[in-house]
Design a protein around this nucleic acid. Sequence first.
DNA 1: CTGAAAGCGCTTACAG
DNA 2: CTGAAAGCGCTTACAG
Lengths: 333, 333
Amino acid sequence: MKVTITDIAKDTGLALSTISRYLNHKKVQPENQVLIEASIKKLGYTPNRIAQGLRSKSSRSVALLIPFYSNYFWGHSVSYVTSALWEKGYTCTVHTYLPETDKQLKTIQLLISKKIGGVIAVSGSLSQEALNRLEDNGVPIVLLDQVLSSLSVDYVTSDNYQGGYMAGSYLAGKGHKKIGFIASEPGTYTICQRTRGFLDALQDHQIPSIPQYYSYQTSAYPAAEAQLQHLLSLKEPPTALFFCYYESCLSGISELAKYNISVPEKISIIGFDDDPLFSSLAPSITVIAQDFLTIGKEATKILLSRISGEDSSPGKKVLVPVRLIERESVAAI
Amino acid sequence: MKVTITDIAKDTGLALSTISRYLNHKKVQPENQVLIEASIKKLGYTPNRIAQGLRSKSSRSVALLIPFYSNYFWGHSVSYVTSALWEKGYTCTVHTYLPETDKQLKTIQLLISKKIGGVIAVSGSLSQEALNRLEDNGVPIVLLDQVLSSLSVDYVTSDNYQGGYMAGSYLAGKGHKKIGFIASEPGTYTICQRTRGFLDALQDHQIPSIPQYYSYQTSAYPAAEAQLQHLLSLKEPPTALFFCYYESCLSGISELAKYNISVPEKISIIGFDDDPLFSSLAPSITVIAQDFLTIGKEATKILLSRISGEDSSPGKKVLVPVRLIERESVAAI
DNA sequence: CTGAAAGCGCTTACAG
DNA sequence: CTGAAAGCGCTTACAG
């Protein structure tokens, strides 16, 4: 049933090593090549990658690690990475991880057992210990999204600062002076960058900073609604709002709809991260969009150059530009 | 650097086979077990799954195949399947496929090369040839979503008939008599089932069938909008609408918003498949929701029983119940 | 360019 | 329960 390289050798009368050489695209006499190709077709031979991997000690497989709670945007990066690597003969497994270090280590351990060639991870709550385990085993790592200071691995992340700056500039350019800002998770790298960019933009546009307009909270989802209600209840409520992460924008939209506050007549809004539905809503939502495809592309490129060993420079950091998608949710004042 | 089973054997003074037996959870003298465990910890040994796979001829890996254009709902099934299989020591790769048969075959070929243990596929436009190739190589297959008549593989799919019936009954129960229906892709198994269920429900509720209210089209996205406009322009437009697939519901919502047709006052709507945003919209959207998690769970269970060989019965078909999520988009008349 | 031989890290009969 | 030996399907120096 199973036809192996040995069968091809017997069938052609050539040595095992000659067949192997042909399979690995090394020089073979033209007449032998013809012989081998005919035999492969005749017998229906398929190389056994498991055996190849064992012998050559390269599994041609990489793993993608995504935090469990992660939003589905990363799907775009995942899709790109998976198919790009597949094209190169690599197999790509996707794993969601939980915050618990011991569970992460279990996953990492299995990956090492399977002789994984490299890892691309959405950093999120990936523990230092898990990353170290990977490093200790010589597995190249590319981290996406959050930048964790202490490691010397490669990073690919959106230019979050630029995104915040664009949002601020855009609203200012539309004549808004009273601009609210809704963030959370203050410790996070991405949120910090967006905040910094946003505030810098306002400053560059000579818009006075009004502390009440900027709300950060530590807790999760419901928070954004509370923040929004607070902002709207001010004596002089803002005329425009920057939702600096996806979930806040989502709850913001529904909150505004619930209270029948018309956008953009009553208040203008701009979000961070795009949703397929945002363009279908009335009004459609203006956002800063991350380029997840390019993130995936850059990450793949770096990882492959690390796996092949052609790049052994210290960890690098690639910033991928974001872009403003102008729709209907911001009015000029 | 790399520590192997041989190192453990040397370190403990036991035979290779004894270590192997321990690793495979077979009986070993208690004192040897202690010895082995200590040595494994001391040397930091990790089994090489590649070598195990080669020797034991089971790779403990399965592949998930998803059509490229597929909506992201399947992500829920994918997540479940991936982590459930991972728990069992299986590695799970996800692959999106294009409609072209030759490309599908290339993917399948690599999977076979990697000695894949089984496949779970969202059937979509998976070609007969690709499926045959898998079958010829003895790879167990579980198909999701569309039922393709000719194969004797396992199926796990939502009870689409029930879903259509529930939608029809619900609208009828709310007093609607003039009920529109928006479908497309008439050849599709799922759409056919939903349509049948829906029409049966109307009949069971003595609601006369008005042909103009039922629109099927062959083309894609823009079609739903055209269909909707047609329905609304009728002299006696329907008072309720069933969008029988996700994309039609999406474009329906935005179309209705665009023309300022208030839901549910002017017209009631119910969709098929739920979107996270549907509960945030004003009004929130009532839908028939598929249970993608259970679909993943069933598929995993069947596949594992096929791989282990404990189930060799002919292909079975599992219907997973759907459920109605009642929200605000349907008014009582 | 080609062939004979060794070996990747395991598992699996086969004796004991 | 344990050990010695063969072998999974390949690749890789080593001679020629």
